[in-house]
Amino acid sequence: MSAPKSEVVTLRINGRVVTVPEGTSVAAALGTGDALVSRADLSGRPRGPLCGMGVCFECRATVDGVPEVLTCLVPCREGQEVVTDA
């Protein structure tokens, strides 16, 4: 069994152009920047993904205009726009 061909997708996170291997989740792609941050808490402090499994709701962000998407459950796609509030 040969390893699947490595392909990449390009998306934008808060306007920053990010290229990641195909199959990367949006939550994982958030970690390509300075810090793994997805949202702000009620006091405005940054938060990042915790559970990675769609349970904790910490990784929520706006994906292609849809708010509150659990980014750990969504694969990166070409041309995707991701916006975090932190």
Binding site: V20, P21, G23, T24, S25, A27, A28, A29, G31, T32, A35, L36, V37, D41, R45, P46, R47, G48, P49, L50, C51, G52, M53, C72, C76
Partner: peptide, 21 residues
């Protein structure tokens, strides 16, 4: 434990499997 970069054990593992560098 609420700081970014603090995850679960499997949580971190899952993100790495999912492409977190």
């Amino acid at each position: 434990w609420t700081l970014p970069g603090v995850l679960g054990v499997s949580g971190l593992q899952v993100l790495v499997k999912d492409g977190l560098p």
